[in-house]
């Protein structure tokens, strides 16, 4: 009987494979990354349902403002948000690159920059929401606004969570250095970050562009 497998699954500290990136080098790391991809399947579907609801309801404006009026007045806000978030995805990619090839101090720098960009994105979104609310366009005004605040707010909540999460990983990398565990954690949070970027592209198209056109 073969015992090739006897060490087994929850291998954390023994790199098994060489020639693959650090985060994939243990069975545990590779399994957790697969698990995260499966989680993202469910998150994609969660957003898909919110998008479907938005599309069904976005012309149901009741006595409230229409999408064209709401977003058409000032396009600079969501345009800036888009550029900031797309850039943050790029800097997040640079962090992963530095983790694999470069210096750990630059890695930490890129994470900090990504987090700052994320924070400014959230700041703009909060400003946008508070402007709408101060004009009386709240969640309880119409079905369209309920769907808008929920869809965009859910994305914003995801980004906020991502910033806190990234902070925790940054802390662990500073304390423990880059090892298969912290590398896997950084890789997963970056997957999450890129995923949120993709969702934003759809929000930009479906909510804002469709709204102003």
């Amino acid at each position: 009987m073969s015992i090739a497998h006897s060490g087994l699954q929850h291998h954390v500290d023994e790199p098994l494979q060489t020639g693959v990136p650090l985060e994939f080098s243990t069975e545990d790391g590779a399994t957790k990354i697969l698990g995260f991809w499966l989680f993202m399947v469910t998150d994609v579907l969660l957003f898909a349902c919110l998008f479907a609801t938005y599309v069904v309801l976005y012309k149901h404006i009741g006595a409230g403002a229409s999408a064209a009026k709401l977003f058409g007045d000032d396009v600079s806000g969501f345009t800036a948000e888009t550029f900031i978030l797309l850039t943050s995805s790029f800097t997040c990619g640079l962090a992963t690159y530095e983790m694999r090839h470069g210096s750990h101090s630059r890695l930490k720098l890129w994470i900090v920059i990504t987090m700052l960009l994320g924070l400014s994105f959230i700041g703009l979104e909060v400003y946008e929401f508070s402007t709408f609310v101060s004009h009386g366009d709240t969640m309880s005004t119409s079905a369209f606004l309920s769907a808008f605040f929920t869809l965009v707010g859910t994305h914003g909540a995801h980004v906020s969570l991502g910033i806190i999460w990234m902070g925790l990983i940054l802390y662990q990398i500073s304390r423990r250095g880059v090892n298969p565990v912290t590398a896997r954690k950084l890789f997963i949070v970056s997957l999450y970050w890129h995923f949120l970027d993709v969702v934003w592209v759809f929000i930009f198209t479906v909510v804002y562009l469709t709204g102003v056109m």
């Binding site: 609801t53 069904v56 309801l57 149901h60 404006i61 009741g62 006595a63 409230g64 969640m139 309880s140 005004t141 119409s142 079905a143 369209f144 606004l145 309920s146 769907a147 605040f149 929920t150």
Partner: peptide, 12 residues
């Protein structure tokens, strides 16, 4: 107080 599924304000 949102209006996703209410009969008022455009809910469905």
């Amino acid at each position: 107080g949102a209006h996703f599924f209410t009969m008022l304000a455009g809910g469905n």
